[in-house]
């Protein structure tokens, strides 16, 4: 299992569009992905779970990936966080 800490860096937090991007990214991989926020753990391939986190900007998250492509999942997520979920490109 691979584990990494992130901070939500985009303007509006994990709202519908970034949450969609997140789930689309994690769903490309076979590894199980979990997101932990304040001890609450949700399935990283569930958009309903992500929206239920109500993760606004600045929220710290721990993400774990478990499976054959776990390193690749986190690499893809690194990229997504670095791009701030393309939040400022053309709004929501």
């Amino acid at each position: 299992m691979t584990k990494k800490d992130y901070v939500i860096s985009n303007r509006l937090g994990l709202h519908a569009r970034p949450a969609s991007l997140f789930v689309k990214t994690t769903s490309r991989f076979t590894s199980a992905v979990k997101i932990i926020k304040d001890g609450q753990e949700i399935d990283g391939k569930s958009i309903m779970g992500l929206l239920m986190l109500a993760a606004g900007p600045g929220t710290p998250l721990t993400i774990t990936a478990d499976g054959p492509d776990e390193a690749d999942v986190l690499k893809a997520l690194d990229d997504l966080f670095e791009r701030h979920f393309d939040d400022d490109i053309d709004g929501d």
Binding site: A16, A19, S20, D43, I47, M48
Partner: peptide, 10 residues
């Protein structure tokens, strides 16, 4: 997003 909700594990 709606289509993703329809595919949601929930």
């Amino acid at each position: 997003a709606y289509l993703l909700i329809l595919n949601d594990p929930f």
